[in-house]
């Protein structure tokens, strides 16, 4: 069945962007979230790729947060300070924020009404400052230009069932970070894993990549996904919290957001092998001036050291330290490390 009435794919983003200690915010002067997107067509799919770019200016807090000093912070945390490169303050004494949220949405051609009518819009955007070193974002994003109806879910079930095992390997988080992540030095979100229970309606798929070690609970998740093969949309960001909504004009699907500790999250999603999945291994690159490094995330297990992790990924420990801005070689169980994979060539659109 087809419905020629255009519909919209919508989803919400919630994320906490943390600034480094010493970059405390006194007040936000301006903040905007703008799509920087390119649309690519293939035979079977249309891919919406790019970034939602958060930019803004803030007035830095001049006073060192005494509470932070008094907390149980380690001595090294209390006395750490930024490098010159990290000092990014405008001539007017204003701090600048620029943080891209990479987004990659793959849509079957059959769901596209008119490629020329596919647009990404930020419908609403709001923020909160729970602490002076953190910005909490909430945004509603929509992709227009799709068909309101689609083939019945059953037609996807078979396909899904056939692919269940493959998907069990393929489903994983993917994190893509810009190589230059200057203004926002650190993004520490509350790691959240989403379990989306869908009925028969194809809905948005939001995948993030995390270096996962176990597959214990994946199968349960995979079952929930068996009927969701219509549209894959995945967005990547560091420690992003996502909620996904279905087509606005379609039936409502259940959505359950489960917050988990990183260790739990690790158990929930697939394995490292999964990065071979085609649609999850694409490196995002939009701006000619920006090169992106695809990163894997590794959650440090008990007994692991930087050396063992370095050996496992065949990446020098110094590179891992640099990527994660580590000041020492000690890592702790549960700590999330970004493992640089390679630097992609910037693509022009």
């Amino acid at each position: 069945m087809a419905n020629e009435q255009a519909s919209t794919l919508s989803f919400s983003i919630q994320e906490a962007v943390w600034l480094n200690r010493g970059q405390e915010i006194d007040s936000v002067l301006s903040l905007s979230l703008d799509p920087d997107i390119t649309i690519q067509e293939t035979e079977d799919y249309v891919t919406v790729k790019g970034n939602l770019v958060l930019t803004g200016e803030y007035s830095p807090g001049n006073e060192v947060d005494e509470d932070q000093q008094q907390r149980n912070a380690s001595l090294s945390e209390q006395v750490s300070f930024r490098s010159i490169e990290e000092v990014r303050v405008s001539d007017e004494g204003l701090g600048t924020i620029r943080h891209p949220f990479p987004i990659d949405v793959t849509i079957p051609r059959s769901r596209i009404q008119d490629v020329d009518q596919v647009y990404v819009n930020v419908d609403s955007f709001d923020y909160d400052l729970p602490g002076n070193g953190c910005i909490e974002l909430q945004a509603d994003v929509s992709i227009s230009g799709m068909r309101g109806e689609f083939a019945s879910a059953e037609s996807y079930v078979d396909e899904t069932e056939e692919e269940t095992e493959q998907e069990a390997r393929d489903f994983h988080f993917e994190s893509v970070r810009p190589q230059e992540q200057e203004e926002v030095q650190e993004v520490r979100g509350e790691d959240v894993a989403e379990e989306e229970k869908e009925a028969s309606e194809p809905v948005v798929y939001l995948n993030r990549y995390a270096e996962a070690q176990e597959e214990d609970s994946y199968e349960e998740e995979a079952e929930q996904e068996q009927q969701q093969e219509d549209v894959y949309a995945y967005a990547h960001a560091n420690d992003m919290r996502y909620t996904a909504n279905a087509y606005q004009d379609e039936a409502v699907e259940e959505e359950q957001e489960v917050e988990k500790e990183p260790e739990e999250e690790e158990k929930t999603y697939g394995t490292r092998e999964e990065e071979n999945a085609l649609y999850l291994t694409k490196v995002l690159a939009r701006d000619d001036e920006e090169a992106f490094t695809r990163l894997r995330m590794c959650i440090v297990q008990a007994g692991e050291s930087l050396d063992t992790i370095s050996a496992r990924y065949k990446i020098p420990s110094s590179q891992i330290m640099r990527q994660n801005r580590l000041n020492e070689e000690r890592v702790e169980e549960g700590q999330i490390l970004y493992i640089p994979n390679r630097i992609s060539s910037p693509t022009s659109s």
Binding site: S74, L75, S76, Q78, S80, F81, N327, E328
Partner: peptide, 10 residues
């Protein structure tokens, strides 16, 4: 200086 501060404090 950063490296020394990190080393001593750690």
């Amino acid at each position: 200086s950063r490296a020394l501060v990190t080393t001593i404090s750690t």
